[in-house]
Simulated assay, not measured.
Amino acid sequence: MKEQLENIIKEVYQKKNKNLFTFLTGAGISADSGIPTYRGTDGIWVKGTKFHKPEEFGTFQYFKENPEEVWQYSLFRKKMFESAVPNQSHFELVEIENLLQDRFHLITQNIDHLHRRAGTQRLYEIHGKPREIKCSNGCNEIIDLPLEIAGKNQEEDLTQKDIELLKCKACGSWMRPNILWFDERYDEKTNKKFSSLKMAKNSGVLFIIGTSGATNLPMAIAETTLKYGGTIVDINTEDNFFTTRIKDKKNKIIIRESASEVLKMIKEIIKETVNS
């Protein structure tokens, strides 16, 4: 495995075109920070919602019918995210970015803000940012979630002040978290769809860490990297949708080890390559 990584990293670093090092992360990378993954038996959807199926609860349609319930859950999750701290994998990625500079890009499906808190700068949050809100009725402005709105315990209700702050000043409709729900499509403004695909096109190697590929933009990113000759490195604890897609491809490396240990190895190889 180490020899394969050394070969692909050195090859990509020496290229003039299609020479980006892109990292795609999902919920698995934050598990060591105490944040449950989404679909596991102790997953965040199971712990925090009335329904166990995210496709039922995590939709714009459900929000329109039950805005207070969704906001209670969102603020419960806000408190969970704020109490977590970045783990070693997050910090390894920051060090890799410092080595590669503009040739590094990180695309994350996570909305927990841990990559940013760890210090990552070249970051694309393709599932949105819950620390931002926008009008559910279509008013265009995206604003920060007011600081007065605190995270909540699971059983806490919204206060009257919360409700006032979560209403659109232009039209009076409920504001909503600026995230992607299951019945919505990726776009550029919130989800960096086209920027991410352009990045994938120019990536010599795409490292996939802690995500199964269950949503369509991450899979399209992997497909685009493959289409234009890049290599996929699948770093997960078990096989997944990405594995199925790349298993017959030559330009792939499949690794079933701890993300933090593999990232540490990748960092050392890059450091040696950059300094040689």
Rank of each mutant, 00 (worst) to 15 (best):
E132F: 11
G128D: 04
M219V: 14
I209A: 06
K192Y: 15
E156M: 04
K18V: 07
T215I: 13
N275H: 10
N110L: 10
L263Q: 08
P146Q: 05
N66M: 03
S33Q: 05
E223L: 04
P54Q: 13
E148A: 07
K10M: 12
E257F: 11
G48T: 10
G151L: 07
F63L: 05
S89W: 05
Y38P: 02
Q61R: 15
A214S: 12
I142T: 10
E164N: 06
C171A: 02
E125F: 02
Q14G: 05
E11W: 02
I246Q: 00
G172H: 05
N66L: 03
I270F: 11
N98K: 15
F60M: 09
E97C: 10
K79E: 14
T243H: 04
E238F: 12
T215G: 06
K201I: 14
K271R: 11
V94T: 05
G28R: 05
E261W: 07
R116N: 10
M1S: 13
L206S: 06
T25D: 05
Q61D: 15
M265I: 14
E6N: 09
K271P: 00
G213A: 00
Q160L: 10
G34H: 09
I208S: 07
R77G: 04
S276G: 11
N98S: 13
D239K: 07
R116A: 13
R176M: 04
V12N: 07
Q160I: 08
G26A: 12
V233I: 10
N236K: 05
S196F: 07
T22A: 04
M80V: 10
E95R: 12
N216D: 15
T273F: 05
T25F: 04
I96Y: 07
E68S: 06
F194K: 15
E6V: 12
I111T: 10
